[in-house]
Design a binder for these strands. Structure first.
Lengths: 131, 131
DNA sequence: TATTGACTTGGAGTTAACTCCAAGGAGTAT
DNA sequence: ATACTCCTTGGAGTTAACTCCAAGTCAATA
């Protein structure tokens, strides 16, 4: 699979894919004789994983460390597991924040929708105090 | 309330608070005769709101626009409501991504925990294909 | 064989959101 | 009144994660 196809599949740019490979977010990708990237199934799995993790704010640095450990073989299984748990703690924290923000947005919007009907805010839109 | 107290309350830096005020993420804050910021209850509500929204990745620019609309009065109620809905769409998208990443992390960690016990990976840790 | 178009590299540039800094002012303890 | 601490400002600097660029290579087509 060419870099272009992978990019279309995941809606990212070639620059981002090359960047991921260059810094080690994914392992080195297969090449043709001419030196052109030819992504294998495995390569694509790594790409998919990187995109998923990055979409939840897992830092590039942590992904690099994970790949580095992976390439050292089975002796790093525990270290990799710990790294994943570390990532999970952060992702969960963020998830909670997003949920909290959704709650606030939903509350404000429901209040605003009432106000849109009447054209007047009878309550203080910003005066939302958490109990 | 002084800037320091607000910072301690929300665990942010004075620089960030001043930055928020400067660019308009929050309205201008009350001052003492000497020109020192003295945050009112309302000011603090705005700070709280800004921090909450920012923690879920709502862009500074959107918050600026919201405050700007707010200051124009009741004629902007519908516009503000639409802005909030726009924000909600994005926050929900991110929330879904975070949940998806959590699922992936949980799956990988559970597999790794099995492997940690035996010291060997009997399955391909990276070969996680979504159906 | 000449051109086309996609690919390659290393390195420089961009962006959002802070974060730091220097110079100076105000309020309080001694 | 002197020292000390915290505050003020405008503007410059930093950071992570891309994103762009120039120069060059390669395979396929006219």
């Amino acid at each position: 699979m060419t870099i272009k196809e992978v990019c279309e599949k995941y809606d990212i740019t070639p620059d981002t894919l090359r960047y991921y490979e260059r810094v080690g977010v994914i392992p080195e990708v297969n090449r043709t004789k001419g030196g052109i990237r030819d992504y294998s199934e495995q390569d694509i799995k790594w790409v998919e994983n990187a995109i998923c993790m990055r979409s939840a704010g897992v830092p590039v640095e942590m992904l690099i460390e994970y790949v580095s450990l992976f390439q050292k073989g089975n002796s790093t299984i525990e270290a990799r597991c710990n790294l994943l748990k570390e990532a999970r703690v952060e992702v969960q924290k963020q998830l909670d924040k997003y949920q909290n923000t959704m709650d606030r947005l939903n509350y404000k919007i429901s209040r605003y929708e009432e106000a849109v009907k009447t054209g007047v805010l009878t309550w203080d839109a910003e005066n939302i105090k958490k109990d």
